[in-house]
Structure formats: C-alpha cells, structure tokens
C-alpha cells in the first residue's frame, strides 16, 4: 500500500494541453455509465438492427447463403436502397431518443443539485468547454448508434455491389451522416437543457418524450382544426424527417421518409421553414443552458 506524507507540497510537474481536459468529463461519465447494467444491455441491443441489416446486405450478395435457407431469388424482393437506409436511420434514431432520455438528464442536474458548477468553473475550464464535454458524452454514444453503423453498412454494400453503386448512391451516405448529426445534436442539446433546468431525472427524461410526442399531437390537433399543414411545425419528428427526406432524395422525394419520422406526401412543408424551426429549438436549448451554466447564481 502506498504511504502518503501528511504534508502539502506544490505541484511542479507538466500540465496537460487544453484539448485533453475536454476529454476528462466524458471519461468519468463513461466509467459511471458503464456501471449501469440496464444501460449496457440496452446499448448492446441497439446494435441488433444494424447487425441484421449487415446480414441482409451480405445475404443478398451471396447466392450460396440464400440457397442454404432455400430462399433463392430473395435478393429480388429485398432492395438495398434509400428506403433500406432510411429505415435503419429511423429505427436507430428512435433508439437514440430512448438512450438520450435515459442518460441525458443525469449529465448536468447532479452538478447543479450539488453546487459543483462553481468548482468546475473555478478551474481553467470555461462554460462552453463544460457544455461541450457533457455534450460529447451523448454525441459519442449516439454516433455509435446512428451514423457510424449507417456508414459502415453503406461501405459494406458499396464493397459488395461495386464502386459504381457507391457513386450513384453517394447521397445516401451524405444523408446518413448529416441527417444523423442533425438529430443527435438536437437530442444532445435538448437533453442537456432539460438536465440543467429539471433536477428530477425521471421528469427530465419524460419531458424529452413530451417534446417529441406531445408536440406532434398538438400539431396534429392544429392541423385538424385549422385545416392546414403548418401544425407540423410543432412536430419535431416531422421537421427532422423533412430534413432527412431532402438530404436523402432532394426536392423530389419518392418515399414518405424514415420510419417514426414520416413526412406524408402532400403534407410537406417548405424545407427552410422546417430548418428554421429546428434551429429555433436548438437556440432555445442553448439559451436555457447559458442561463443555468454559471459559476455562481446571481440574485438580482
């Protein structure tokens, strides 16, 4: 056992570079999250869909595998196309919402509840760096669930189908990457903002769902009463779906968008309006964070 002198001595050693300090909070957070059995199981389960998708892509390109299951010709029924990848993104993004609702509220609220912010910010560590560090925890986990498996599957399909398929369908890769980032950034911001304002974690988690589902229901009511489509502006799923649709297919979509993020044909809203609404939501979250993340609360 180490023996420690009961004395104070100044520190003379080297200091870590500024960027490495950004990784300290995520590292501690991952250690904490790793202790939760439920979270570990949920996280592993979230890779089932991408795994099945990988098997499908592999099977479609291997006649011998299909023959093994007496399913010759099945490759004609399964198309690895924009719908396939949109479905993957839709499922994974919904799981990402569950994960963000589970771990997001625990990011900032304990620091606020325990007055620990003054200690974080009394160090050479800014408010922006604090939020970025907390956000990194969510962004890493959500990236591993969304665009990383999506792009890996896209690479697998490109490898098996040939280079020309990859160039013809480059838009899918861009859609997976940018569409996922739009979603996970929004989720992370919302989770942190709610975590900063709602100290009780189950309530903050519930509010995450509330923003998506209650907003959608309220929007639908407005649409019905006013006989309009503009109520969809309150439906975050619709807004994100519209963005994805544009990223995956451009201005002439052939599908209704991703599962859970449907954009029914004939009900589309102008893309700038959807993008502006999403930006507004993100700005509101940033404002909420800016109000709460302070070294000391000022009573005016």
């Amino acid at each position: 056992m180490a023996v420690y002198k009961k004395t104070y001595r100044p520190y003379q050693g080297d200091l870590t570079p500024r960027w490495r300090r950004l990784l300290v909070i995520p590292r501690y957070a991952f250690e904490d999250l790793h202790r939760s059995r439920f979270l570990n199981i949920f996280y592993l389960a979230s890779f089932i869909y991408p795994l099945i998708a990988a098997l499908i892509i592999y099977a479609v390109h291997n006649a011998s595998v299909l023959k093994l299951f007496n399913a010759e010709g099945a490759e004609r029924l399964i198309s690895i196309n924009v719908v396939f990848f949109q479905s993957l993104l839709g499922w994974q993004s919904m799981l990402a919402l569950f994960l963000a609702s589970f771990i997001g509220p625990g990011q900032i609220s304990p620091d606020l509840a325990n007055n620990a912010l003054s200690l974080y910010l009394a160090r050479p560590f800014s408010r922006v760096e604090y939020v970025a560090s907390k956000m990194a925890v969510l962004l890493v986990l959500l990236s591993l669930m969304t665009w990383i498996p999506g792009l890996l599957l896209f690479a697998l399909q490109s490898y098996l189908e040939g280079g020309s398929w990859m160039f013809d369908h480059g838009r899918i890769a861009a859609g997976l990457f940018f569409g996922s980032w739009a979603w996970i950034l929004l989720l992370a911001l919302l989770a942190l903002a709610l975590s900063a304002w709602v100290k009780w974690k189950p309530v903050a988690g519930g509010l995450m769902f509330g923003v998506f589902f209650v907003g959608a229901a309220f929007g639908a009511v407005i649409n019905n009463i006013q006989d309009t489509n503009w109520g969809h502006l309150l439906n975050v799923g619709f807004l994100v779906g519209s963005l994805w649709q544009h990223l995956f297919e451009g201005s002439q979509p052939t599908t209704n968008g991703a599962v859970f993020f449907r954009v029914p044909s004939g009900e589309q809203l102008p893309l700038p309006a959807c993008a502006a609404m999403l930006a507004l939501l993100a700005l509101a979250c940033l404002y909420m964070l800016a109000r709460k993340i302070r070294g000391v609360d000022v009573v005016r």
Binding site: Y11, G13, D14, L15, T16, R21, V24, I25, Y28, L119, Y120, R123, P124, F125
Partner: peptide
C-alpha cells in the same frame, strides 16, 4: 477529477 480538470495528468 477536479485536479485533472485543472490540468494535472
């Protein structure tokens, strides 16, 4: 944690 945030390895 606090010492690491202050820059200690």
């Amino acid at each position: 944690l606090m010492a690491e945030l202050a820059g200690l390895p």
